[in-house]
Amino acid sequence: MTATATTPRVPADSRGPRASRVGRVTGSPVLRLVVKRLLMAIPIMLGVTVLTFWVLSLIPGNAAQQLLGPEATPEDIALLEQQLGLDKPGVVRYLEWLQGAVTGDLGQSIVSRQPVSEILSQRLPVTGEIVLLAFVVSLVLAIPVALLAAHKPDGVMDRISMVVSTLGLSVANYVLALLLVLVFAVTLGWLPAIGFVPLEDGLWPNLRSMILPSAAIGLPLFCFYTRFLRGDLVDQMQQEEYVTTARAKGVGSWSVLIKHAFRNSSFGLITIVGLNLGALIGGTVIIEQIFALPGIGQMLLQAINTRDFVVVQAAVVIFALVAVLANLIVDLLYAVLDPRIRYGSS
């Protein structure tokens, strides 16, 4: 800060229109974006599956031993290994698996001989339902709460939401799950403590069995979304000049918040939601365990215990795929919603 009376006269063009914000995917049309993202996803997916294979090969014992139990003779084990194809070198097994996987065939369970696709078709809907419920409800609640909090920073609503969200972000989901069970199942007896009721048995019984698991996942998520959105909204309201323009036009404070600031904050929210979805599905493992829900997470734990590596591999692929796809969808949403990307920026 040396010059006192001068402000450097910066030509408008050399500044660029907020290059950092715009610079995400400057000028590239939507299609190119999709292709680029998919191409980037291929090495990541390959890496993830190789890593899984490698890590699993480190685990002592294999499915043959697990199936035959501790009393089996080495000959029996060797025979079964041969039948299951476990005697081949890891590289060969991986390539065989990969060959199947790219054609959509994820193989069959070593332990139950059931095709993996069949297992997945039973398990995915359960996990999907929990995640979807948690995700939608937390987002739907977070938006109005964040708006209320951001409307009056440091006001009563803001303080309450801040305390709640700080707590919610510090509580482990397994702890939360047990506390929820303790209160709503054990003490109050309103909801079942464990178990899954399929949708065929009626919507309400199904929902009843899903409420606690979804809440255990959704509550921290709600805190996270609320907090992020509230912070971003306040940032927009306090720092962005377009907000001042809107206020100078005579727009009311709620309209400024909802029509102007929220519109801009929603892009950040979308990014966060996308990034989060991958972590979210990983978090179901322990919740499904606690509530005895027959989802992907429970399947994964069982498969690790029985060394059913084909099934483990499938679960990892699903998890990684969800993360990758979520990011892709975020980018697409951006491209569709954000005019700066949709039209390319000048």
Partner: peptide
């Protein structure tokens, strides 16, 4: 991109 818990589970199982 590797599901975090899966990796730790596997490593913990392996070792």
């Amino acid at each position: 991109a590797f599901p975090s818990l899966v990796l730790t589970l596997a490593v913990a199982q392996a070792l």
